[in-house]
Design a protein around this nucleic acid. Structure first.
Lengths: 115, 115
DNA sequence: TTGATCGTGCGACTATTGTCGAACTATTAT
DNA sequence: ATAATAGTTCGACAATAGTCGCACGATCAA
């Protein structure tokens, strides 16, 4: 058999806060993480159906290298999942808090000035 | 009298999550926010005593424009404070969670492999 | 008023980032 | 084997970010 595609991931202890925050500071990537938190492991293409493949690879690679997601090859596709446990161990509550803020960001806070 | 220095700050509702995360993703700025959380309002120079002034202005300006800090002129100095209430209203727990992770990041978790 | 001090704005430079097409490799189906 | 498909890598490009010297305006002390 041929060497299947492999992916390098940082160890849990090596996940660094600034890099994680940077990864989450990009609207596209933040939306990806939102989807991953909602749906668990998904096919990479679901994270950006309209994006050029090379752009998608770029963002998933950045999320992987910063320790936010885990990537595994599945046939010719690749599956992406949040490193929920590692992130919770290292920065408890961070992802939850950020995603809560993400919702607040474009959810007009029902009954405030909602249209 | 002359027009005292004024600073533009985004309204609370206009504070955007990605910008906040980006502001916090820079180690220097993260350290600044850490100090602000600990000490309240401080003289800007305390946030980076060794930095060139123009570099310091750059970072405080970015923190201000992203809605993380409030800046006011005090004589010829300028005082910086965290916009704690605004941030808590918009992204509850975010700053606390991030700073908790910041501590975990360079505090070797006493008794682990601490030298 | 004069001079010292502090922050700001500008400009230059370098490094990083995001976007994307094109060529390449791996995997699957026929 | 051959063709089709999915992801990766590379290179180019524009945009953005970080650093810092320098000149300028504001502020305060004498």
């Amino acid at each position: 058999m041929s060497p299947a595609r492999t992916y390098v991931h940082p160890d849990r202890e090596d996940i660094a806060l600034p890099r994680v925050l940077f990864a989450l500071s990009e609207p596209l990537r933040l939306a990806m993480v939102r989807k991953l938190a909602d749906e668990g492991e998904v096919d990479s293409v679901e994270l950006g159906p309209d994006l050029p493949r090379s752009t998608l690879t770029h963002h998933t690679g950045l999320l992987r290298e910063s320790g936010v997601v885990f990537v595994r090859a599945q046939g010719r596709k690749c599956m992406i999942s949040l490193r929920t446990e590692d992130l919770a161990a290292r920065f408890p509550g961070l992802v939850e808090t950020v995603l809560a803020g993400y919702d607040a960001d474009d959810a007009p806070a029902a009954g405030e000035d909602a249209k």
